[in-house]
């Protein structure tokens, strides 16, 4: 194989192609990993962070509703609290069904526990009692459980935010890993082409030029061409064929 010109050229181009194919494959694999990380950020962390925000907003609305109740707006407050409670439960279920971090279920259980305590203070009392102007009730029971629930929600948000930060750091590294094979391949291809150009010039262009010079300088007294082709490929064969032709012509002349 090594002695055939066409195989040598084919092998050289195959090498170049394999460089690009390997670089492309590695880039594709890294980009797949990259997209998985993006999906992880959106699915695992962003969804829960949004749910915790809604949960925090819901309990703040419940807290505002209770304060409205104390101010005497009983019907209005019940409407707000009921809507906020539904909103809380919906967002809580989103977070509960999206446990992706280590020990995240403990944080969810903590929210459940604190929200149940918080809810137990107002769920029946709002309908059965009139707390107008009763700030002691709010201060002794509602406020502390509200703060605890909010803290439990914030804790869940923090672990997801930390994970989000870690994922985005990974994202940066993975994007670099996806890009690098491309950059290395571009530089590699240029170096490869310079080398290929050197070998083609040295092994094919130079012998052809030498052969051409030898033909040009061929004298009628010469018995064969004086070229310096040392290869065993088609160019050497061409030189041999020319020499054979010269021999035949000289023989015929004689």
């Amino acid at each position: 194989m090594g002695n055939k010109l066409k195989y040598k050229i084919l092998a050289s181009f195959l090498l170049l192609v394999s460089l690009l194919v390997i670089a492309g494959t590695v880039s594709i694999i890294e980009f797949i990993k990259l997209s998985k990380t993006v999906t992880a950020i959106i699915d695992d962390n962003y969804k829960t962070i949004e749910a915790t925000k809604t949960m925090a907003e819901s309990i703040e609305r419940i807290d505002s509703g209770i304060l409205l109740h104390i101010l005497g707006e009983k019907e209005e407050s019940i409407k707000i609290i009921q809507a906020a409670d539904i909103m809380f439960i919906e967002s809580f279920n989103v977070a509960k069904n999206n446990i992706t971090e280590f020990n995240e279920s403990i944080y969810i259980d903590n929210i459940t526990e604190n929200y149940n305590i918080f809810k137990s203070y107002w769920i029946n009392n709002l309908y059965q009692h009139n707390f107008q102007g009763d700030l002691n009730w709010y201060h002794n029971q509602i406020h502390l459980s509200f703060i605890n629930t909010k803290q439990a929600i914030t804790n869940l948000m923090y672990i997801n935010q930390n994970s989000l930060y870690n994922h985005s750091t990974q994202l940066k590294e993975k994007s670099q890993r996806a890009i690098m094979p491309g950059i290395v391949s571009i530089i590699g291809s240029i170096v490869f082409l310079v080398m290929l150009n050197f070998f083609i010039t040295k092994h094919y262009i130079t012998p052809i030029t030498e052969l051409s010079e030898a033909i040009k300088n061929f004298d009628k007294n010469d018995k064969y061409l004086h070229s310096n082709i040392n290869s065993k490929d088609e160019l050497k064969k061409l030189e041999t064929d020319i020499n054979n032709l010269i021999t035949k012509l000289q023989y015929n002349k004689i």
Binding site: L15, A23, V191, F192
Partner: peptide
Amino acid sequence: FSGFICIIFCALPFI
């Protein structure tokens, strides 16, 4: 990938 780069570049002089 670095290993393949080595192989590809070392193959050229062998040809």
